[in-house]
């Protein structure tokens, strides 16, 4: 029983990161109607940023989330301006499909660059707090993982407030609803698109920095994180930040618990099966906004 409970706790802790990774993907999808399948590679870059800041300068990854986010924001803007912006005026289906293809190309390039620059080795950050645990009803909670969950939650809270309250945040939401109308009322839609893409990438950067505290970072981790983020977005729906976060936590728990019952090797299968079930019930996907 305790082991099961421990699994639930661990799953929830990991799931928070799934949620964080998914919100960035969901933001880009919701605002631009583009699916950036290189999202996992952006997360990988964030992980490396935190790893090198820690290794070279001793910066704690929880501090590195800021420079990592800033760097990935710029990377996102650059990717958008150079590659994705040309898709903006394409019709829906074409835009989605071509965004997937471009994202796929970007993921190949980023993976290759990471391989050349940093080799295929697994990298991990071991901070002073790495071994510390807190008790929770018979289970233990590693402080670092708990910290990552809390930070993920706080970051999403910040994004939520930004989108609800800030002038530019409202402009982003208005553009997501109707780009044509938004541009008619004087919203600089082009800038909004670029910033939304940058913001989505920055969230991948934050997620990557947090991931580096608990999991290995290597050039190849992108695909599995993209898949995780996609699953969470399909489960949680687009446009609800906290819904996405909760879906992430649920996916983490579902994986962890199924790992407990079926063997650890099957934990990822559970998430994929859940995903297929949701897709088969709603073939248009839960992506469709209400």
């Amino acid at each position: 029983m305790t082991v099961l409970w421990q699994n639930v706790v661990f799953g929830a802790l990991i799931g928070g990161l799934y949620g964080l990774a998914a919100v960035g993907l969901s933001l880009v999808f919701g605002v631009l109607n583009m699916l950036n399948v290189a999202h996992g590679e952006l997360l990988m870059l964030g992980g490396y940023a935190a790893f090198w800041l820690f290794t070279l300068f001793g910066v704690d990854p929880f501090v590195s989330i800021l420079p990592s986010a800033a760097a990935l924001f710029l990377v996102g803007i650059l990717l958008y301006r150079v590659l994705f912006e040309r898709l903006v005026s394409a019709p829906g289906e074409t835009k989605l499909r071509n965004s997937i293809l471009i994202g796929f190309g970007v993921s190949l390039v980023l993976q290759a660059l990471a391989l050349i620059a940093w080799t295929a080795d697994d990298r991990a950050v071991t901070t002073a707090a790495a071994g510390t645990v807190l008790p929770l009803g018979g289970a233990v909670v590693p402080v670092v993982r708990l910290g990552a969950l809390v930070v993920a939650f706080l970051v999403l809270g910040g994004v939520h407030l930004f989108l609800r309250r800030a002038r530019f945040g409202r402009a982003i939401r208005a553009t997501a609803d109707d780009p044509g109308a938004a541009s008619l009322v004087g919203i600089p839609v082009g800038t909004v698109f670029a910033v939304a893409f940058g913001l989505g990438s920055a969230l991948a950067g934050v997620a990557g920095a947090l991931v580096s505290t608990t999991d290995a970072v290597s050039p190849a981790i992108g695909l599995s994180w993209t898949l995780k983020a996609l699953i969470v977005v399909v489960l949680g729906g687009v446009g609800h930040i906290f819904g996405t976060f909760v879906a992430g936590v649920l996916l983490g728990v579902a994986e962890s618990v199924s790992g407990f019952f079926l063997g650890n090797a099957y934990r990822e299968v559970m998430g994929l099966v859940l995903f297929l079930i949701v897709l088969s019930v709603r073939p248009q996907g839960l992506f469709a906004r209400e």
């Binding site: 699916l35 289906e93 989605l96 499909r97 997937i100 898949l227 996609l230 699953i231 399909v234 990822e268 299968v269 994929l272 099966v273 995903f275 297929l276 897709l279 088969s280 073939p283 248009q284 996907g285 992506f287």
Partner: peptide, 17 residues
């Protein structure tokens, strides 16, 4: 039966399973 990107992602999920 899945449309556009859902077909792509769905088939990827099946292969990964």
């Amino acid at each position: 039966r899945l449309r556009g990107p859902y077909f792509a992602i769905g088939t990827l999920a099946i292969a990964e399973i």
